[in-house]
Amino acid sequence: MLLIAYDGSDNAKAAIDAAAKVAPGAVATVLTTWEPYSGTLARAGAGGVSGMAGVAFPDLDEQARATAERVAAEGAELAAAAGLHATARTAETNATSPAPLIIEIADELEVDAIVVGTRGHGRVKSMVLGSTSHGVLGHATRPVLLVPPTAG
């Protein structure tokens, strides 16, 4: 089984295509993570603003969750169209980077590989690791399939 980290970006779409070419017909979980608004605020420093601490944003969080579910479903559809046996999954992260959560879910599912897209490097189009791919590569105890944008 593959765990494909999917955020709806072109890089993530390329990662799905590459995974389908490398492991045709594989079972895949397409994972989209989302962060509660209070976490985003706290990270931005606004959590320290008077009156903001401890305020919940149920409506915004519900929107973020719904968006993540839509993105994950879209990813699973793309993966299925590319020949993978895909299911969508979303998960809530409270961390700055989704990488620890991606690794946690990879361990829970005991996947054979984690698939992440990487950013292109201008005209050269070689790989530049974003914070997520870097975090996953740096901490995963499983194979990581890194996909540059041109590889789709």
């Binding site: 050269v124 790989m127 499983r142 194979p143 540059p148 590889a151």
Partner: peptide, 20 residues
């Protein structure tokens, strides 16, 4: 290889996998 490849790269941890 990772930073100059323009095709997918599968990086496999060794000791870590064995340890796990």
């Amino acid at each position: 290889v990772l930073h100059h490849a323009h095709r997918p790269v599968i990086v496999v941890p060794s000791d870590c996998v064995a340890g796990e």
